[in-house]
Simulated scan of single mutants.
Amino acid sequence: MKTIHDYLDSLFLHVPVTEETKKAKEDLSAIMEDHYHELISQGKSEHEAIGAVISEFGSVDELLQALDVSALYEERQTPDLTDAITDEEAFDYWKTVRYFALYLSTGIGLCISAVAIFAFFIGVNQEGLGLLMLPVFGAIGVGFIISSALKYAAYRKRLDDRYISNEIKYVARQQLDDYEKSFRIGLVIGIGLCIFSLAPVLMSSIFYYDTPLGIAMFLFMVAVGVFFIVYVSVIRSGYAKLVSETYFVRDEDRPGTRATKHKYGESAGRVVFFHTVYWPMIVVLYLMGSFAFGAWAYSWVIFILAGVLQDYFLHQFSQKRP
């Protein structure tokens, strides 16, 4: 049912909030729920019932016109559909996300394992070999991270500031729901390994066996635990991104023109100007204050305050969205 409510929310995303449209949305929600339960009682699976309900109720245009709120419908902001993300591009994006998740988590795991291998060779009195293996595994890990990040960034750039249709949101919601079980299992395994990784270190101190070997086992377990946590989290975020956004945003700190316009409405121009001058101005104030008063020890606090103020200002702009 959550998928149907999310779909209905996306249909009314650009519709002015009035008593009439709120009542129309409530009526539609009740009708869609009744139809969903009717299909379930006929033996349909959950996904089949949800798909049938969404496809049978049509677009927001038909819904609003049928409920005689077409005048209000004309006033809503129409999204730019000229280069909306296609089904094929969405699945290619998720494929790229999985590739990025695998290589990123492997790279991080290798970097941690490099230290573990070094500790292991110290434990067997082979410090020289450990010093040789440390940069080798570290370099391989960094290579995995950089190569995957470049491919991921390139694909995100292709999708940047493009419209995410309700159909894509529905498919993304299905993919996200299907992945939830795998996400929970991976997270539990990863966190469990990180917690139990302390056992080898504690045992080495209690039973007085070689401490470097205990540290090596600790780091190996952490490496595997971090692999699972990063891997499932990145994949889940890839599905969630196409569920939660209306325009694809490559860089959260610098959303595209259409994404900014959608979020801030008529205030979009002021938001762009704000992003352009705000942080350079903060840096200048930091340097001027630090030099003038010799306050280097605590002047960095301005960046924390600036981050809080930035969130406040942007929230105010979004509140003024028509």
Rank of each mutant, 00 (worst) to 15 (best):
G143S: 05
A90E: 07
L67E: 11
G214H: 01
V271Y: 06
Y93F: 15
T18R: 09
I112L: 15
S113M: 14
F207C: 06
S233T: 15
G294P: 08
V224G: 01
Q319G: 07
L187S: 12
I108S: 10
A66I: 01
F317R: 01
N166W: 02
S237Q: 15
A297C: 06
V15I: 12
S165R: 02
V136L: 14
F121L: 14
A90N: 12
S197M: 11
L309R: 04
S165V: 05
W296D: 07
H35N: 11
D27H: 03
L110M: 15
F144W: 02
G269R: 04
A52L: 10
F137G: 02
V284G: 02
G289E: 04
A199W: 04
A172D: 03
A223G: 10
N125V: 01
T82L: 14
I140A: 13
L67M: 12
K44Q: 02
A295C: 05
G58Q: 02
F228Y: 07
I50R: 07
N125L: 01
K22I: 13
K95H: 14
S233G: 08
S29G: 09
A199Y: 06
S299P: 01
F313S: 05
S182D: 13
L314V: 10
I85L: 10
V277Q: 06
K241S: 12
D251R: 14
I235K: 13
Y298H: 12
P16C: 04
F196S: 13
W300C: 00
L285P: 08
H315Y: 13
E180V: 10
T276D: 15
E180Q: 13
A154Q: 10
L134Y: 08
L213Y: 04
G192C: 07
A66P: 01
A66W: 03
S299M: 15
F207M: 11
A297L: 15
I229E: 11
A84E: 08
G214D: 02
D92E: 14
D61I: 06
D87V: 12
T260E: 06
A49Q: 01
M281T: 14
A295D: 06
Q77R: 13
G190D: 08
F144E: 05
V17C: 04
H35T: 10
L213N: 10
M221V: 06
Y7T: 00
V69W: 03
R162C: 00
L39V: 00
V243W: 03
I50N: 05
E56V: 01
K320L: 11
V97Y: 09
V232F: 14
Y103P: 03
S55V: 03
Y103F: 15
H47A: 12
V308C: 00
K25W: 04
M32D: 04
D80P: 05
A90F: 15
E89F: 04
L28W: 00
A154P: 00
P16M: 02
G186A: 11
V188S: 07
E75H: 09
